[in-house]
């Protein structure tokens, strides 16, 4: 069964970029789910316990990345799925808050395909990763 991923981002351009990334090299053939805000993202997450990784934009309308993480924590929803917060120039304090909320790692914008590929490889290698403690 191919690996599946969820992208939660309000930028259509970023969704297109992820599509490019997840259709090349080792990631070719992956299933990619898309959501354009936190609320939608949470609903998709709830339906797909098989997800290998979630790429979650920090700033979004409706429900932002941190709010999504907080709700997931509160409702104990699929805590086994690693969630990567995607940010532009977050400060160390922002990062700490994200990790406290249950983020497994960070992806900084602007990113290139190689950045995403490395991140996914790490997530798949440590499939037993426990999130947020």
């Amino acid at each position: 069964m191919p690996n599946s991923f969820l992208v939660v981002d309000d930028s259509k351009l970023h969704h297109q970029m992820y599509k490019v990334v997840f259709s090349r090299g080792t990631l070719a053939g992956s299933t990619l789910y898309h959501a354009t805000n936190g609320r939608e993202g949470y609903a998709v997450l709830a339906e797909h316990p098989e997800l290998s990784l979630v790429l979650l934009d920090l700033n979004m309308p409706e429900m932002n990345g941190l709010e999504l993480l907080a709700r997931r924590r509160a409702e104990q929803l699929h805590l086994h799925i690693p969630v990567v917060l995607v940010t532009t120039e977050a400060t160390p304090e922002d990062e700490a808050r994200g990790r406290a909320a249950g983020a497994w790692d960070y992806l900084r914008k602007p990113f290139q395909p190689a950045d995403v590929e490395q991140l996914v490889a790490r997530a798949l290698a440590g499939a037993s990763v426990s999130t947020g403690k």
């Binding site: 259509k12 969704h15 599509k19 959501a35 354009t36 805000n37 939608e40 700033n59 977050a90």
Partner: peptide
């Protein structure tokens, strides 16, 4: 002065359509 993720205040474009459907 590169502090704060100041995207917070960035106005949003019309992003209501599902990205994969356009």
């Amino acid at each position: 002065d590169r502090r704060k993720g100041d995207r917070r205040s960035a106005p949003r474009g019309p992003g209501t359509e599902a990205a994969g459907n356009v």
